[in-house]
């Protein structure tokens, strides 16, 4: 198993990064750190996808000198999927940071527990 993990070192690192991001998401109370954890998770996904598309000894999928045999190029689909992922990640990061700014302006703290507590108190009042 260790041999297999070492041969798939890219995927192994991606999986470990994913787990680290997930634990950060669960453990950190600071909203900014939660967002960073989510971004680490998405970065791990990109690494995983990009490593899935690679094939030893082949070139990037840009046609050179009219060679169009599939045997000369790597898989272009995961590259496109990573592009989609990056765009979505940028969008949700911007959105969540905006929400965080609004929360900070209202409650003057970034601690999610305190924000929840204050929100509940406001509800009671």
């Amino acid at each position: 198993m260790l041999q297999a993990l070492y041969e798939n070192i890219e995927q192994t690192v991606a999986v470990i990064l994913f787990g680290i991001g997930f634990v950060i998401l669960l453990l950190q109370r600071n909203l900014i750190r939660k967002i960073i954890g989510l971004n680490i998770m998405s970065t791990a996904t990109y690494l995983f996808l990009a490593s899935m598309g690679y094939i030893h000894g082949r070139k990037a999928p840009i046609v050179v000198d009219g060679v169009t045999q599939a045997i000369h190029y790597i898989n272009p689909v995961p590259t496109g999927l990573v592009l989609t992922g990056i765009v979505v990640s940028v969008s949700f990061t911007g959105m969540m940071l905006a929400l965080t700014v609004r929360l900070y302006r209202r409650y003057r703290t970034l601690d999610i527990d305190q924000i929840a507590l204050m929100a509940r108190q406001e509800e009671v009042e």
Partner: peptide, 9 residues
């Protein structure tokens, strides 16, 4: 991951 195809195959 350990059961996935090898990287670059």
């Amino acid at each position: 991951v350990a059961h996935m195809p090898r990287f670059g195959a």
